[in-house]
Write a protein that binds this DNA or RNA. Structure first.
Lengths: 130, 130
DNA sequence: ACGCAACTACGAATGATTTCGTATTTTAAG
DNA sequence: CTTAAAATACGAAATCATTCGTAGTTGCGT
């Protein structure tokens, strides 16, 4: 049950969300096993975090079955966008262009990604009226 | 004096770095006054944070004068890039293109920024050999 | 040289997040 | 129905970051 709307996830909560987004609705044990592929985490640690996330409305819980099954409450795009906006503010003081330049300066992007970005730029141009 | 090399700044530390980057070398009092333009912060709070940042090597301190003068140890680009890389990993699992799309989808960028981004894209194209 | 005002040092309280231990509940097997 | 294994609930310790109070230092003006 959710107490408030949709606070941004903490780092630990985000780690779990990434698993939920990739694997779909899963049990605590499955989440914990995924976690342990990366680093050692106790079962009850994972459980507790999922319970907290449920109380925050970050995940939904299906309790009709024997074991509870958790799923992310929001799609990845929406959550990542919200995190991105905060990061852009705190780290780049809102200068989106600066951030893109820093990013592209150091990362190889795929052809597909590049053309989608170009399309996005054209759309921006059109909206800007040149 | 610095104990280790260059850990990433915390959010509170970053807030101070932004001031140091903008104002150049300044005293604790000056930093604290800038902070108080945004929200109430005790003088010793700012002082303590600067001392911690000094011990981490995030700032340098000039103690030859009556009052200490602090300056950022690293340029903004380098620090922001490091923070960006971590954020890209934790939030977008390294998918830089996805992140740019999310970003441009919701932010108005200036013409100047757009053309610099286009130039950056061309450079990427050339490196990719198409 | 004295005293005040400003500054530095630093321990410790607070707050947020993560981690875990233990108790309780549930379910499936025998 | 009984029991064991697995799951859930939850208090509380551990960790990390932030904030502040207090004590001690410095140096300028008189």
């Amino acid at each position: 049950m959710s107490l408030y709307q949709h606070p941004l996830p903490t780092d630990g909560e985000l780690e779990i969300l990434q698993i939920l987004w990739e694997k779909g609705p899963v049990t605590v044990r499955q989440v914990n096993e995924e976690m342990n592929l990366l680093r050692p985490v106790g079962y009850t640690t994972t459980l507790k975090l999922l319970q907290i996330m449920d109380s925050k409305g970050l995940v939904s819980r299906n309790s009709t079955q024997k074991v509870h099954v958790y799923a992310a409450a929001l799609p990845p795009d929406q959550t990542r966008k919200a995190l991105l906006d905060r990061f852009l503010e705190t780290t780049f003081q809102g200068a989106a262009g600066e951030m893109v330049l820093q990013l592209l300066g150091g990362h190889r992007t795929t052809e597909d990604e590049l053309s989608r970005i170009r399309q996005m730029l054209e759309d921006q141009d059109n909206q800007n009226g040149q």
